[in-house]
Nucleic acid binder design. Sequence first.
DNA 1: GACTAAAGCGACATCAGTGTCGCATAGTAA
DNA 2: TTACTATGCGACACTGATGTCGCTTTAGTC
Lengths: 190, 190
Amino acid sequence: MKKGQKTEEFILKKSIKIFAEKGYTAVTMKDICEATDLSRGGLYRHYSSTKEIFTAILDKDIEDNGSIVDEVIQQKVPAKVIFAHFLAGEKEAALGNNKGWFFAVHEFAFMENDRRSYLDERVFHAGQILKKILRYGHEKGEFKKFDIETLSFHILTVLDGIKTSSSVLSISEETIDRQIDFIEELIYIN
Amino acid sequence: MKKGQKTEEFILKKSIKIFAEKGYTAVTMKDICEATDLSRGGLYRHYSSTKEIFTAILDKDIEDNGSIVDEVIQQKVPAKVIFAHFLAGEKEAALGNNKGWFFAVHEFAFMENDRRSYLDERVFHAGQILKKILRYGHEKGEFKKFDIETLSFHILTVLDGIKTSSSVLSISEETIDRQIDFIEELIYIN
DNA sequence: GACTAAAGCGACATCAGTGTCGCATAGTAA
DNA sequence: TTACTATGCGACACTGATGTCGCTTTAGTC
């Protein structure tokens, strides 16, 4: 791997944390310089805006998530297990241990005027991943027979709301757990 | 009423629209100058930051909402009607006709480092208003017997999520309606 | 090892927003 | 009307972030 490519991955890796801590809008190129120990010129050699860095992170994240879900479905892992993992990941995000990308996408979207082109596509992907899990759960008879469109949107909005709230308010882990239980009761059979 | 007080109300009124259109972070004092036809100095005479203006708007909004709910409960209006109105208001917000304040509070919260003092209080108020409606519905036997804490949080997060999504994505009015139906089915008896 | 391209540097010009201050004008109370 | 206070003005200095550019250093290739 070339030096430049390595640097780019390094920049993305370091930046995730900054975006998570400060929020998309608050991050400046200077912040990223400091976190990466790169100079202005050095950084601009690779990325010319925070937006560019942020979208690079998102794209990478979407790709990774999608392929993992495909893989476990392939391996016939029970739908409940997959879904529980999905929820666990989102819980981690809600607790601030990392930032779920759905959350990040929305935060990002607040700031951009061009709201309905780039983002539709990314969020569409997120929806696709969840729908894949739900459809698989239906087929295996593990999940109740809801309308998948409505249900997936409902779940995503709740998760998104939880994450927003927890990043913003002093809500307890218990509150998050209760919401996750609520969702699970909603969809699991018995 | 004194001139100054009039001006302050005028500034708030004009600013709501700008915050709704551009999003909290993107608004500058210059924007507000333009919208109000005030000069920098004139504006700074009354408010010295966008944050100050924004919180003034929120406080006013919270006050208004709370008193309306109290009033209709006093008048024994059916809980379903009150709740439907509540949802309708949020739908309007989701459609972008105005910005629901819960949404606004969250958007605002993204930007502030001091996340857990000012906001807890405001969102607590929002929760109180919804819980009041739910408790009233319980008492009148119109609503299912959920745990009110969990349910109110769930509803607020869904609504918040819907609003976030609709401000960000090209989701249809039908999608919003389906989510609102989903919530209603969840809580109404039969 | 020598050469070329890639990567990294940091000073610089630029820009957009902020907050202030002395002055001008309008409101208001006597 | 007067006189004082509240309101409004806009130029100004300041700040912090942006993006560029010529230069140096490092990596990769032969």
